[in-house]
Design a protein around this nucleic acid. Structure first.
Lengths: 118, 118
DNA sequence: CCAATATATACCGATATAGGAATATGTCAA
DNA sequence: TTGACATATTCCTATATCGGTATATATTGG
């Protein structure tokens, strides 16, 4: 067996930097394929193919208007990623806390090291 | 060019479910390869290969003790994912808010619909 | 109907897998 | 040294890409 399909789940879908870029572009506003092509600076077929992957994992919604198709991000599809990584978020923030502790320690030492067990 | 290497970045590394499973296992406690093999129920070479990928993106730390190697997760490596998906977290939580609103609405209707603009 | 526009799909080539089996490396013990 | 144990690496095959090019499928306007 080879690697899992990019359409297997949203983790695989957004492992591709271009697709994250596309999601970021359509996160706040609806964009047509042409507009995406223009902003990304890559050939239209590639954009369509990336959009297909994003569609198949539900990461984008499409609205047809004439011959244009407007895409927008569907953050709900990112929930599995958010939930998974959130289990580590505490540790990440704890690390910030540790950093703060270290900095405080350094600052205390800097102010005067005559405070050790004296 | 084919797909990006799994070792290219942490997004690709954790796109593989087994590797997320491994990270989850070593998130709270240090585990040897044998213990991982036992808990995952997959052949040892595969575990070692997954661990190698996780190592190469810095997602795990290793400690050698005799002939054993103990692995533990390094949440810091997940920060890019956390930061990226956090930009969508607001939308996700907003949706929770919407859901709450809908539920409240349903509950209010259930309690008595004679309260509408009366 | 025909042409032009907007988008999607098909085909091709190169590559990086993931899984399985076998083997290599490293470490302890007798 | 020899053997057993723990782990890493190598070789193999099948597959699912991703990029590029060409083409198919709407949809609109004249």
């Amino acid at each position: 067996m080879a690697r899992a399909a990019t359409t297997a789940d949203v983790f695989n879908a957004v492992a591709e930097p271009r697709r994250r870029e596309i999601l970021d572009l359509v996160a706040t506003e609806e964009l047509s394929v042409s507009e995406l092509v223009e902003r990304l600076g890559i050939p239209q077929p590639q954009v369509s193919k990336h959009l297909r992957v994003l569609r198949e994992v539900g990461a984008v919604h499409v609205r047809s208007d004439g011959r244009q198709r407007f895409y927008r991000a569907n953050p709900e599809a990112l929930r599995p990623i958010h939930e998974w990584v959130s289990r580590y978020a505490a540790a990440l923030e704890e690390r910030f806390g540790e950093l703060d502790a270290v900095l405080s320690e350094l600052k205390r030492e800097e102010l005067g090291d005559d405070c050790n067990d004296a």
